[in-house]
Nucleic acid binder design. Structure first.
Lengths: 146, 146
DNA sequence: TATTGTTATACTCTATAACTATA
DNA sequence: TATAGTTATAGAGTATAACAATA
């Protein structure tokens, strides 16, 4: 059977392939594509609220709780009180967390390389740009809705 | 927060957005993005085995069973014996199934239109082409593995 | 009154193994 | 011995609602 025309199905299939490949690649560091994305967010800031993390990777705040619990149990991240707003907790990546993240990033990069094996660098950038615009457009829509 | 660079995460987010939007749009015809894709496959052939359907939309054969059960219960598709190989069943779309499919397709098309609102026609074709190459490349990989 | 983090719960998805009938 | 369809089941992922502390 040929590749489908249905762009929604194509997105699902490509995404599922990416997630599955990343999950396999991340086995050695005991992360999956989701906890990797979370760690990546943490590595990019010095202290974020769980609400911000939830928005960034589009996950329910209640699911973030369990994921941070997992990272904290492994010493990869920490919850710190936020004096400016005592409702919030500032989640920060630890030294070991950062070390693991760098290892994980290399694993993910080679998994992405497998998934996108048929595309050259320019095409990868084009794909990234188009997807970013879809995601940004969606973020704006949600913003507008609230 | 900016749109992520991580192309795997971008694929997940865009795909999730597409699925969610399609599921809402398909509410009136009581389908979801998956059963729609299945019906679309059926509409494109006159009789397919469940195994072929499973390969086409990359779902486990055991999950296809339940989905065909659902379509059959609603009179949208039928299982017919395949005299050439009595292990197989030939799944065919019915008249009412085809009618519903056309209605569903219009709903999905406008949902895709919302998700891709930021992209012009040429960009949509580019995106489709890139995704097809990822999916095709993956299919070839699986073929080779077996 | 609204928001952050939390807990609990139920529901959908997904993966896996085992079984039958056919090949 | 292998394949198509089926059933059952367990696990992961997801969505939702309610609650305490704080704004």
């Amino acid at each position: 059977m040929r590749a489908p025309e249905n762009i929604g199905l194509l997105l699902s299939l490509a995404s599922a392939r990416g997630v599955a490949s990343a999950n396999v690649a991340l086995g050695p560091v005991e992360l999956n594509s989701r906890s990797y994305s979370l760690l990546e967010q943490l590595a990019g800031t010095d202290g974020v609220s769980q609400r911000e993390l939830a928005d960034a990777i589009r996950l329910d705040p209640s699911q973030i709780v369990a994921m941070i619990d997992g990272l904290e149990r492994r010493g990869l991240a920490e919850r710190r009180p936020n004096p400016a707003d005592r409702r919030q907790k500032s989640v920060v990546i630890t030294g070991p967390g950062r070390t693991l993240f760098h290892r994980a990033r290399a694993l993910v990069e080679s998994s992405v390389d497998e998934v996108l094996a048929g595309l050259d660098d320019l095409e990868r950038e084009t794909l990234r740009g188009l997807l970013q615009r879809i995601v940004r457009h969606d973020a704006a829509r949600l913003e507008h809705a609230s």
